[in-house]
Amino acid sequence: MNSSPPKLVAIDHDDYHAEHIGRTPAGHQFFLTLPFEPAIAGRIGGEFVALYLFDQQGVLIEAKIDSLGPRASLDHEARKSLYEQRLKELGDVSFERIEIAPFSVDRFDTTFGLVLREPDDDDDVWAVEVQPGNYMAFFEPWDSGEYDT
């Protein structure tokens, strides 16, 4: 297949995984999300709150990632409180479509971000996956704003 990696990926605001995306009063783009690391292959797994800030061109400028510990002992109220705190810190935001560049950051021995996945073979295509957890995946056309779960 003829596929190429994106420079930017569009994400449309919705009521699901892209509920808290948009712009800050300063014009930065943001993505507030709840990544997770599954408990597989001897790993305990974990829950996180991640706030990604991007400049107006979609380049990552900051990643605030908080670990909430293992999924099995998750304090749901603490997660909700921290999530709401991160959203409040942004100020009077507008929820809207964002266009951001793929990126990755390593924290807690885990890769976070909108991570490029290269094709495995000639029949495969480029993808961008929200990691950890791979709970959002983007494919061409990169400006569609849609994702698979």
Rank of each mutant, 00 (worst) to 15 (best):
L51E: 04
P38E: 13
G113R: 00
V130M: 13
E99T: 10
M1R: 03
P132F: 03
S4P: 05
T111V: 15
D92I: 01
E62I: 03
E99Y: 01
D121A: 07
H20C: 10
K88M: 10
I40V: 15
F95S: 02
N2W: 07
F108C: 08
G22K: 02
E62W: 04
L32Q: 05
A137N: 07
V125H: 02
G45L: 06
G91Y: 07
K88P: 01
P119M: 06
V105G: 06
K7P: 03
L87V: 04
H20Q: 13
L82T: 11
L114H: 08
L51R: 05
M1Y: 11
T111W: 04
D14E: 10
A78H: 06
L68D: 00
I65L: 02
P38S: 14
P141D: 12
G27N: 09
Y135I: 02
Y52L: 11
P38K: 09
V59H: 03
F103V: 09
D143H: 12
S94K: 11
F31N: 02
I65K: 03
D122K: 14
P70W: 01
E77H: 13
D75Y: 09
L8C: 08
D121T: 06
R97T: 08
L32D: 05
I21N: 02
D148G: 01
R79I: 12
L34P: 03
V128I: 08
L8A: 08
T111M: 13
W126P: 06
E99R: 11
A39V: 13
G45Y: 03
D143S: 15
E19C: 00
E118S: 13
F112P: 00
T111C: 12
G42A: 10
L60F: 11
I65R: 02
P70D: 13
D106T: 15
D75F: 07
G45A: 07
G22V: 02
F36M: 13
E47C: 13
S94W: 01
P102A: 13
E47S: 15
M136T: 01
D109L: 12
S3P: 04
G22A: 01
L34S: 11
L32I: 09
V125T: 04
E129V: 07
R117Q: 10
M136G: 03
Y147T: 06
K80S: 12
D15H: 06
T110M: 08
F54H: 07
D122G: 12
F139E: 04
Y52I: 07
D121Y: 07
F48L: 10
A101F: 08
R79P: 07
Q57R: 14
D75V: 14
P70L: 10
Y52E: 04
G45H: 02
F139K: 02
E19G: 07
Q56G: 09
R97N: 05
G113P: 00
R79F: 14
H17V: 00
V115L: 00
F139W: 10
Q57P: 03
Q85D: 15
L8I: 11
G46Y: 05
L8N: 11
P141S: 07
V115G: 00
L60M: 14
I98E: 02
H76T: 14
D106L: 14
G22E: 01
E96K: 08
E96F: 00
I21A: 05
F31L: 08
G45W: 05
D15I: 08
D92P: 03
E62S: 09
V115Q: 00
I40F: 11
